[in-house]
Amino acid sequence: MQLIAEDLVIDRGSRRIIDGLSFAVKAGEALVLTGANGIGKTTLLRTLAGFIRPFRGVIRLDGGDDELTLGEQSHVVGHTNAVKSSLSVAENAGFWNTYLDSGEDSPSRIAASLRHFGLEDLSDFPAAYLSAGQKRRLGLARLLVARRPVWLLDEPTASLDTASSERLVAAVNDHTSSGGLAVIATHLPLGLERARTLDLAAQRMAA
């Protein structure tokens, strides 16, 4: 499986954000997007997820499910957590499990994903009581409640402490080692295995 972008041109309003970008991410690999704020990392990720239609260029997932769009095969984690305050931690994870996955052995999967992000003791509490970092972890637990081959993560370590960032890195490493792929926008060096870096600022200079 391989995520391919060819000669991508993306406009926002009358501004050209991305001009002639090409890259490929193979299964088992993570691509780290770097570059200053406003360089277009979020725009690029939202284009990959299918929210923004590129002005020109091709995005495709070779070896994916042809019946589904790339977005429907991706986990999308943006700046917000998609967590509902009045639902409990377990209900939040349970909803995304049913909504996204509709798959087998759900309870154990939910429990495992909460455990991975250190939320198992909080599962009965309403999410309203969680701290910013805990909410972020609950948002990230969505990555594990349903299996999807492509992860598109936008600043996933925002409001996470070092220990929690390591949990995330471990999750991404597990994902890539089991044949998934990921595109991650971040400011910080994460220490991912099998990762390549794409510097959008350098790309822009070259273009």
Binding site: G50, H75, V76, T80, N81, A82, W96, L100
Partner: peptide
């Protein structure tokens, strides 16, 4: 929309 749920709903199977 505010808490980002809509993005995830849009990439769901529905």
């Amino acid at each position: 929309h505010e808490d980002g749920t809509l993005d995830v709903l849009a990439t769901g199977p529905l």
